[in-house]
Design a protein around this nucleic acid. Structure first.
Lengths: 104, 104
DNA sequence: TAAATTCGCAACCATATAGTTGCTTATTTT
DNA sequence: AAAATAAGCAACTATATGGTTGCGAATTTA
């Protein structure tokens, strides 16, 4: 039983999880409230939330029998950091186009 | 046989594929040259390249018996676009910290 | 032209993933 | 106290993923 990969990139690979993250970006929500937004069961959503928690993208706060999940937005900076060198590339291409246009 | 998912998020979920993308950000490369950089076989790398091609992150150019793969960097903007709302959030938090500090 | 190189393709394998169903626990509501 | 609600957990299933090996086609090199 090798450990499954649990990182931000794995987490955002699933469209349902991306949806959950988008919703949690606006407000903290319970699993039931989240599940209502997707074409899947509460249990399935619950599993996704677990994965998001394991990799630190989401944190939980118990309140009576409800659990409110909220976003740990800074964790998303890992994706942003990965993107950085690529962003430089498309910025350069824009510069090149800029140079081209100014030479006309 | 349902179609496997093939999108940018799925593509960057694998660490080897992220490595390939990083290398291709610096220069176009052949599968063999790429495979030498990783602890895996040429065939495995080749499969990753296929996936990267299918989702439009990489393009191929044949040159004799060699194939040079290069990055389609603009495709990465899809990830950047997804990140946009979250970036806003951590920018806001920075502003809040800023406010807090200036009130001391 | 024969040997070597580059590389894709197909078949196969082990494991991870995403989902389901059924159950239990804890907290509210009535 | 009984019923209803919220949610985690475990077992199970089907499919995707990442990898391997073996093979064949195309292009160079000797």
């Amino acid at each position: 039983m090798t450990e499954p990969r649990r990182d931000v990139f794995q987490a955002i690979a699933d469209p349902t999880r991306r949806g959950i993250l988008m919703l949690l970006a606006t407000q903290a929500m319970t699993p039931n409230a989240l599940a209502e937004q997707f074409e899947t069961s509460r249990q399935a959503v619950s599993k996704h939330i677990n994965i998001l928690q394991e990799c630190g993208l989401v944190k939980a706060e118990q309140s009576g029998r409800e659990i409110h999940y909220s976003l740990e937005v800074t964790k998303m900076k890992e994706v942003d950091a990965f993107l950085e060198p690529f962003r430089k590339l498309w910025a350069n291409r824009f510069d090149q186009l800029d140079d081209l246009l100014s030479n006309l």
